[in-house]
Nucleic acid binder design. Structure first.
Lengths: 144, 144
DNA sequence: GGGCGTAATGTTATACAATAACAATCAGGT
DNA sequence: ACCTGATTGTTATTGTATAACATTACGCCC
């Protein structure tokens, strides 16, 4: 899916959910889309400053938080970064693989093991918030 | 297991692995042990400063990195914190459950599903960094 | 013991990440 | 127009982590 198509779909998606993809939020989303793999908040901030002059950290963090909340982005804790969710529309649970070396992101189907994980948690009375699991490591190209 | 027993066991464990649990590293480990749940680097730093006067961030981070490398501690990315690994002796993949409400942290054994996850990743040529997976959600006590 | 290489620690400064607190503005409903 | 709540702007600060280099301690060989 091209960035433009993605943005259009995101627009419709937010519309349908009754949330507002404002100009600023759209711009931040576009900036994240414009780069491959994991994107950092301060990188987005720098890009935003190039495009619209003044901008401060809270501006970026608020937009990113919104986008994560909507499910358009995922936060990658291990890297203090963000990645685009390739299919926010269908609510299925994915396994996201992030290469620490090159920043490549891919998604694997791991429904079975994810179900098992949730079950293991449930056995302890623990209710996981639904989320897409992220594994960091090295991709095929990058392990020496 | 009491802190003292844990420290003694850690000592033997490092000895056996040919790594050095120096006085400083032992002290940092003791400081982490002295607190329940998740411990933050700068909290350890403050404690260390109380105990030995001067101390700077790199001192603490290096000790914590060492302890994580040895498997004595786990880093909890989602919280920028560290937890004690209760069973460093047996090689294992842990599943760490963090309650968003009360902050409780527990480590569950989920070797099977974690193995499956790694396998799913491996099928794509992806090598996950050895890590302990974190699920956030609500614990037994907390889901209303 | 003296000298050497490596690992560990100390020190200073800085980079990177995130939020607090409050002011200003905008959009929709009545 | 007016009110209300959400969004964005602004300034300042707090929290997290590492770079770069100096110094000290340890093991080893001779």
């Amino acid at each position: 899916m091209s960035p433009d198509d993605y943005l259009a779909a995101a627009e419709r998606y937010c519309e349908a959910r009754g949330s507002k993809l404002t100009a600023l939020r759209r711009q931040v989303l576009a900036l994240v889309l414009s780069q491959p793999g994991v994107v950092k908040a301060y990188q987005v901030l720098a890009d935003l400053q190039r495009e619209r002059g003044a901008a401060a950290p809270p501006t970026v963090y608020r937009a990113l938080d919104f986008l994560v909340e909507q499910g358009l982005l995922h936060r990658v804790d291990a890297l203090n970064g963000f990645i685009v969710c390739p299919h926010f529309e269908c609510a299925h649970e994915g396994l996201i693989l992030v290469c620490e070396r090159c920043g490549l992101v891919e998604e694997a189907d791991a429904t079975n093991s994810l179900d098992m994980l949730h079950q293991a948690a449930a056995e302890r009375g623990f209710a996981p918030r639904r989320q897409n699991l992220v594994l960091t490591g090295t991709c095929k190209e990058c392990h020496a």
